[in-house]
Amino acid sequence: MKAEEIQHITSFREHFGTWLALIILTVMTVTISVFGADLLSLTVVTALAIATTKAIVVGYYFMHLKYESRIYLLMVGVVMLLFIVFLVLTIFDYVFR
């Protein structure tokens, strides 16, 4: 194995920081949902935006994507792109029906 594949040990500090960010985002999304009802249709968008931010944080830090070789990021990107296109093409049918 190449030298760059020597494992990287993530510090407890970084783990804890990641966790804190996730908790803050959770509090945000609940607060917006419960008290910010006047955002109307935007609530879905904000809720999904926050959820996606959380998912990226989990993937990047907890799942080590930050330290993996680029190929993993590429794969995750392609898979997410595929899935989003599935959704977009399908909803395209329903929106114009």
């Binding site: 093409l89 395209f92 049918d93 329903y94 929106v95 114009f96 029906r97």
Partner: peptide, 11 residues
């Protein structure tokens, strides 16, 4: 099958 027109064109 009854899919919307624009979706058919895209596909």
């Amino acid at each position: 099958s009854g899919m919307s027109g624009p979706a058919r064109i895209i596909f």
